[in-house]
Simulated scan of single mutants.
Amino acid sequence: MPLAVCCVSHSPLLELPGPGPELLDEVGGALDRARDFVREFDPELVVLFSPDHYNGFFYKLMPPFCLGTAATGIGDYGTYAGPLDVPEHEALGLASALLDAGIDIATSAEMEVDHGTVQPLQRLFGDATARPVIPIFVNSVATPLGPLRRVRALGTAVGRHLATLERRVLVIGSGGLSHDPPVPRRATAPEPVLDRIVRGRPMTTEQRQARQSAVIDAARDFAAGDSALQPLNPDWDRAFLDLVDTGALAAVDDWDNDEITRTAGNSAHEVRTWVAAFSALAAQGSYRTDVRYYRPAPELIAGFAVRTARPADETNDDRSDE
């Protein structure tokens, strides 16, 4: 049955004070075009590849991949808090198919998801619960990280299973591109932070507010050029997007994780969600990307991109903003 892809960067700063109106209008326009694409496709099911920022997954047990058979948004950075509409039977069927295909997928019957999962649902549908969704966590932050070829294998296996369903399925990848926001790292985090990212101790309301304020301050300093955060890398971003647009996904199989970090930042590994999503589509044949948007956006501490795609023989050409 029909399959389509929409990959989008996410940023908590889209929901917070700080970014200027010109940037928000431009990014909002690109997201609106993606939303139009999604509305026209009218998916009956969504499969969403997304990272986590130590809100639902912690070092006490950090799988490379995990599929949720039920999921709840935690409501960080002004996003939706509450249960998502996860079809348990179909989620379990996908998990079984992935295991049969040799993908060591973990499952969670109580997955907690943050803005990385919820924001694209809200932006593309207006409501995080508007469509049934199967969330798939792809570890993109907590080291050590597995090889990208396993992410591509995950996406390929997902796409092959989705081809057997009698439903229109939208595959979303959420994250990227080059960016190095102030996400804690196990090697350097102080003990109170370790208590959260290792043991999963819940944050208090005051702690969440303090983190939100710190992100706003970090973005302001980064945009002003007064920050120790690693700069964005538009050349790396555009090279990655070229691989996506041309279908040359196998090129990532030999990418070195340490080199990605050095070149594009600690959180650039979120492009794993894009690799998985486009690999799912590529499993059904050649494709073409439609909506194309990219902007290095220091105010969002991110190389911000949007891509939509369908199989090559079904796609209308709507390439813009690059």
Rank of each mutant, 00 (worst) to 15 (best):
P184A: 07
P184C: 09
R185P: 00
R185Y: 08
R186F: 06
R186H: 07
A187Y: 00
A187C: 00
T188P: 08
P190E: 08
P190F: 04
E191K: 12
P192N: 09
P192Q: 12
V193N: 13
V193H: 13
L194T: 04
L194Y: 05
D195A: 15
R196C: 14
I197L: 08
I197R: 04
I197P: 01
I197Q: 01
I197G: 00
I197M: 04
G200N: 03
G200P: 01
R201L: 08
R201I: 05
R201Y: 04
P202Y: 05
P202T: 04
T204Y: 01
T204D: 01
T204Q: 01
E206C: 02
E206A: 07
Q207S: 01
R208T: 06
A210R: 10
R211N: 12
Q212L: 13
S213L: 15
I216N: 05
D217I: 12
D217W: 13
D217L: 15
A218E: 02
A218K: 02
A219H: 04
A219N: 04
R220Y: 14
D221I: 08
F222L: 11
A223L: 15
A224I: 06
A224K: 07
A224G: 08
A224N: 09
G225V: 03
D226F: 14
D226K: 15
S227P: 05
S227D: 05
A228L: 10
A228G: 10
L229D: 01
L229M: 10
Q230Y: 11
L232F: 10
N233T: 02
P234G: 10
D235V: 13
D235G: 04
D235W: 06
D235S: 11
W236C: 05
A239W: 08
A239N: 11
F240A: 06
F240K: 02
L241W: 00
D242Y: 07
L243A: 00
L243W: 00
V244S: 00
D245N: 12
D245Y: 07
D245S: 12
D245T: 09
T246E: 11
G247L: 01
A248W: 03
A248Q: 13
A250T: 10
A250E: 12
A251N: 10
A251C: 10
A251P: 06
D254C: 14
W255D: 10
W255T: 09
D256W: 12
N257C: 13
N257K: 11
N257D: 13
D258P: 06
I260C: 06
I260W: 05
T261P: 07
